[in-house]
C-alpha cells in the first residue's frame, strides 16, 4: 500500500498522474487493461503479483478459465465496489450497494450467472462468489425438480427406479407447497 502511494506521488510530479494498470488476458485472447485496485480484488491476480516480484507493468497475465463475457461482468462488479470504497472508505453505502447488486443481477441470464460463478471461483473473489451463489440459491429455492432441470439445462440421468424413489421423497418433502 505505502509503495503505491509513493509511486503515485512521484508520478504526479511528472505531471501525468496516470493510474497503474494491469493487463489480463481472457480465454479468448482479449486483453483487459484494469486499474490496479480493481484488479487486486481478484485474489488470483493479487497473489500472482505478490509472489512474483519480477513481473512488470508490461506483463500480461493469462486467465485461461475466464471468458471475455464473464470478465466484463466481473469487472463491472469490482469497479462498482472499488468506486463505493473510494467514496466511502469507512463503511460501504449499504443501500446503494444493494440497489447496484439487484440491478446488476437482474440483467444476468442463468448462463451468464453460471459463467460468472465459475469465473469468480477461479479468480478467487470471495465477496462476488458469495453474492452470486446466493443469487443462484434464490433462483432455485422452492422450485420443482423439473423447473430446476430446465432452468439450468441439466439432464435427468437417473434410472427409472431411482427416479421413482426420488419422486416419493420429493412428494413427502413438498407436501402443501405450490409448484411453479
Amino acid at each position: 500500500m505505502s509503495s503505491s502511494i509513493a509511486s503515485s506521488s512521484s508520478s504526479s510530479s511528472s505531471s501525468s498522474k496516470k493510474e497503474k494498470k494491469i493487463s489480463l488476458k481472457t480465454s479468448d485472447g482479449e486483453v483487459f487493461e484494469v486499474e490496479e485496485p480493481v484488479a487486486m480484488q481478484l485474489e488470483i491476480v493479487r497473489s500472482f503479483f505478490a509472489d512474483n516480484e519480477d513481473v512488470t507493468e508490461q506483463t500480461v497475465m493469462p486467465l485461461p478459465n475466464v471468458s471475455t463475457a464473464a470478465m466484463h461482468g466481473i469487472l463491472e462488479y469490482c469497479r462498482a465496489h472499488e468506486e463505493f470504497r473510494r467514496r466511502m472508505p469507512e463503511a460501504a453505502p449499504e443501500e446503494e450497494v444493494r440497489a447496484f447488486e439487484a440491478g446488476y443481477v437482474d440483467r444476468k441470464s442463468n448462463e451468464e450467472l453460471k459463467e460468472m460463478i465459475l469465473a469468480a471461483n477461479y479468480l478467487n473473489i470471495s465477496k462476488l462468489l458469495d453474492f452470486l451463489t446466493g443469487v443462484a440459491a434464490k433462483r432455485i429455492e422452492n422450485k420443482s425438480v423439473e423447473y430446476v432441470r430446465a432452468f439450468f439445462g441439466v439432464e435427468n440421468d437417473f434410472t427409472p427406479e431411482e427416479e421413482a424413489n426420488l419422486r416419493r421423497e420429493y412428494e413427502w418433502a413438498f407436501e402443501g407447497v405450490d409448484e411453479d
Binding site: 442463468n110 453460471k114 460463478i117 465459475l118 471461483n121 462468489l129 451463489t133 446466493g134 443462484a136 440459491a137 432455485i140 429455492e141 422452492n142 422450485k143 420443482s144 425438480v145 430446476v148 432441470r149 439450468f152 439445462g153 441439466v154 439432464e155 435427468n156 440421468d157 437417473f158 431411482e162 426420488l166 419422486r167 421423497e169 420429493y170 418433502a173 413438498f174 407447497v177
Partner: peptide
C-alpha cells in the same frame, strides 16, 4: 451446470432451505 464443481454446488445449496436441498439432490446424479 451439471458439471459445476462440488464445492460450488454446495456453496449454493448451503444457502437454500432444507426442502430445496432435497429437491436439488434429485436433479441429476
Amino acid at each position: 451446470w451439471k458439471d459445476i464443481p462440488m464445492e460450488l454446488l454446495l456453496r449454493i445449496v448451503s444457502q437454500v432451505d432444507d426442502r430445496t436441498v432435497i429437491m436439488a439432490s434429485g436433479v441429476c446424479s
